[in-house]
């Protein structure tokens, strides 16, 4: 398995896209930290960027990569290798290379500009988001053989999680505003990894106290060691569920 990861990684790193992605993140992070003044402000601006672009680039890159590696996977499948191994190698290689790009592009500026624990949470969230959206990309890719359809599904997934979901939830909150919704809201944010990641970072930033009574309630949940562990555990689940289900589909389908 390590061998295959090695070769796929080598292939991805050689392609210019991942380098461009790294540089893009690096420039934006340094720019935002310099503009923001304080590290906290830099983190806040970076947060929006991370939650919008990282999922988009991860899901599009991973989907395209999957379809482009189709024949390569065929070649491997004709070798005496387990399909699961091939699939997991592809997944790990893509997720790892995107994560490394993210760590270099965002992690290093965060460390250099001294953003502390919140910065660490931001970077960790970004890595999780990368793994989650690569997993979703792979799920989209194993559902259909048609590349255009697969990229379409991937984009819809991104659109849903980055945008539409929040719209739906806001609408629900507005419609049921007369009921106590504290825990319902909590549950609804857990159902979207992007929201979950945003809240982990936001509530551990200084601004959390500025969110008033409800902010304080959620801070007491996500601010504790137990809460933050549970939140990252949920993010892990968000990566595992699509990975395992797409792995299952992949090992039971025709190539």
């Amino acid at each position: 398995m390590n061998k295959i990861i090695k070769y796929v990684l080598l292939d991805i790193i050689k392609s210019k896209i991942i380098i461009a992605y790294t540089l893009f993140l690096l420039l934006l992070s340094i720019g935002l930290f310099n503009l923001g003044g304080s590290p906290d402000k830099g983190i806040l601006s970076l947060l929006n960027l991370v939650l919008l672009t990282v999922p988009l680039i991860s899901i599009v890159f991973a989907t395209t990569h999957f379809y482009n590696s189709y024949e390569f996977m065929e070649l491997l499948v004709s070798q005496p290798i387990n399909r699961t191994k091939i699939f997991m190698s592809e997944y790990l290689a893509v997720a790892l290379s995107l994560s490394v790009a993210f760590l270099v592009g965002v992690g290093i500026p965060v460390a250099v500009f001294g953003a502390g624990l919140t910065g660490f949470y931001l970077v960790l969230t970004g890595v999780f988001i990368t793994f989650i959206f690569v997993a979703m990309a792979f799920l989209a890719s194993v559902i259909t053989r048609d590349k255009a359809k697969g990229i379409g599904i991937a984009l819809m997934l991104w659109f849903y999680f980055a945008l539409i979901y929040d719209g739906i939830v806001l609408f629900i909150l507005y419609a049921f505003g007369d009921y106590p919704l504290e825990y319902a809201t909590l549950a609804m944010t857990v159902l979207n990894p992007v929201d979950l990641g945003r809240i982990i970072v936001l509530l551990n930033l200084d601004v959390s106290a500025l969110m008033g009574y409800t902010g304080a309630l959620y801070k007491s949940i996500f601010g504790s060691v137990w809460g933050i562990t549970a939140a990252f555990g949920l993010l892990l689940l968000w990566a595992l569920i699509p990975v395992l289900s797409s792995r299952r589909i992949f090992s039971r389908r025709d190539l």
């Binding site: 070769y7 796929v8 080598l10 292939d11 050689k14 392609s15 482009n68 590696s69 189709y70 024949e71 390569f72 065929e74 070649l75 004709s78 070798q79 005496p80 290798i81």
Partner: peptide
Amino acid sequence: RSQIGYMPQIGRYPENM
């Protein structure tokens, strides 16, 4: 499959290798 050699109709490989 270690006993089988396969030559596909169109062989596509990682482009950068």
